[in-house]
C-alpha cells in the first residue's frame, strides 16, 4: 500500500515536470511576498485590497486571515439568541415587548425550512388574536418586530439602540406604536402575518443579516405598508448594514423614520418609494 502510494507520487511529479512551466509565474513577474504599494488606499475601505501576491496567487498570510474570518462568521451564524435578555434591554429603555415564536425550534431547521420561519406557531397566533380582540384595542400605526435572523449578535447589540431613537421620532409625529414583538428564528415575511393580525398600518422587521467576513453583527430593517399575507418583497423597503462600523444605529433610525413618514405621506412603499433623503455623506 505504502509503496504504491510512493510510486504514484513519483509518477505525478515526473508528469508535472514534463509540462512546461505555466507562464513561469514565479520568475520574471515574481513579486516580494509583501502587501502592494497602495496600502494607503486601505483607509478608504475595509475591503481586502493591496493584499500583495506571490506570482499571481495570494500570500499564505492572506489565505490564513481569510480562513480565520470565515470560521468566525460561521460561529456568528450558529450563535444562540437570548430573547429574554433583549426583552430586558427594551424594558430598561422603557419599551414594552411581547415574545412570540415561529414554528422553528432550532438553527438547522431554520436554515432548511424558510417556510416555517415565515409563520407564527399556533400559540403565538392566538396571543395576537386575543390582543387585537380587546374591547379598547386601537390598531397601531406601526408594529416593530425584532428577530435574531442569521446573526444573534446583531439583534442583541444593535436592535435596542436602533429602535429607541426611531420610536422617539415617530412618537414626535404622533404615531401610535404596538408593543415590540421579539420572535426568535423568524424570516422577513413574518412581518406580514404579525402586521395583519394587529391591523397595523406599517410593519417593521429588524433582524440579523447573514454575517459577512468581519461583520458578525449586521442588522437589517425591512418594512411594508398595509401588511398582509399576500405582500411580496417588491412591497418592502430595506435598510441594511446597521452596525457602528456600517450604518450606525442612530443614523439608521433617522433613515427609517424618514422612509416611514415619507411612505405614509405619499402612500408609496416598496420599489415605488426611493430613498431620496439628502445624504450629507455623499458629495452631490
Amino acid at each position: 500500500m505504502h509503496t504504491k502510494r510512493r510510486a504514484y507520487a513519483i509518477k505525478t511529479r515526473v508528469t508535472m515536470s514534463a509540462v512546461p512551466a505555466p507562464a513561469s509565474a514565479l520568475s520574471a513577474d515574481s513579486a516580494p511576498a509583501a502587501p502592494d504599494p497602495w496600502t494607503h488606499l486601505r483607509r478608504f475601505t475595509a475591503a481586502r485590497i493591496a493584499l500583495g501576491r506571490t506570482g499571481g496567487s495570494q500570500r499564505t498570510e492572506t489565505v490564513l486571515d481569510f480562513r480565520l474570518a470565515h470560521a468566525r462568521a460561521r460561529d456568528a451564524v450558529h450563535a444562540v439568541f437570548n430573547p429574554g435578555a433583549l426583552a430586558g434591554q427594551l424594558a430598561a429603555a422603557g419599551l414594552p415587548s411581547l415574545t412570540l415564536a415561529t414554528g422553528v425550534l432550532d438553527r438547522t431547521t431554520y436554515l432548511l425550512r424558510p417556510d416555517l420561519g415565515r409563520r407564527l406557531d399556533p400559540d403565538s397566533r392566538e396571543k395576537l388574536a386575543s390582543l387585537a380582540a380587546l374591547a379598547d384595542y386601537i390598531p397601531p400605526d406601526l408594529v416593530i418586530i425584532i428577530s435574531d435572523g442569521l446573526a444573534a449578535q446583531a439583534a442583541e447589540l444593535h436592535a435596542t439602540s436602533t429602535v429607541l431613537p426611531l420610536v422617539g421620532a415617530l412618537r414626535a409625529a404622533a404615531w401610535r406604536l404596538a408593543p415590540i414583538i421579539v420572535v426568535p428564528l423568524a424570516r422577513v415575511k413574518l412581518q406580514d402575518e404579525i402586521g395583519a393580525a394587529l391591523g397595523a398600518r406599517f410593519s417593521l422587521m429588524l433582524l440579523g443579516e447573514r454575517p459577512g467576513l468581519g461583520t458578525p453583527d449586521s442588522l437589517g430593517a425591512y418594512f411594508t405598508a398595509a401588511p398582509r399575507p399576500d405582500r411580496t418583497d417588491a412591497d418592502r423597503n430595506c435598510v441594511s448594514n446597521i452596525r457602528p462600523e456600517g450604518l450606525p444605529p442612530a443614523q439608521a433610525a433617522a433613515k427609517l423614520a424618514w422612509l416611514l413618514l415619507e411612505s405614509a405621506r405619499t402612500g408609496r412603499s416598496g420599489v415605488a418609494l426611493k430613498d431620496d433623503q439628502p445624504n450629507p455623506a455623499l458629495p452631490a
Binding site: 475595509a46 481586502r48 485590497i49 496567487s57 495570494q58 492572506t62 443579516e209 459577512g212
Partner: peptide, 19 residues
C-alpha cells in the same frame, strides 16, 4: 478584493483567482 464582498456579506472569487 480578496474574494470578500464587504457590502453583500458573501464570498466569491478574488482578483488573484483570475490569474
Amino acid at each position: 478584493p480578496g474574494a470578500d464582498d464587504i457590502m453583500l456579506g458573501y464570498q466569491s472569487t478574488s482578483f488573484h483567482d483570475s490569474h
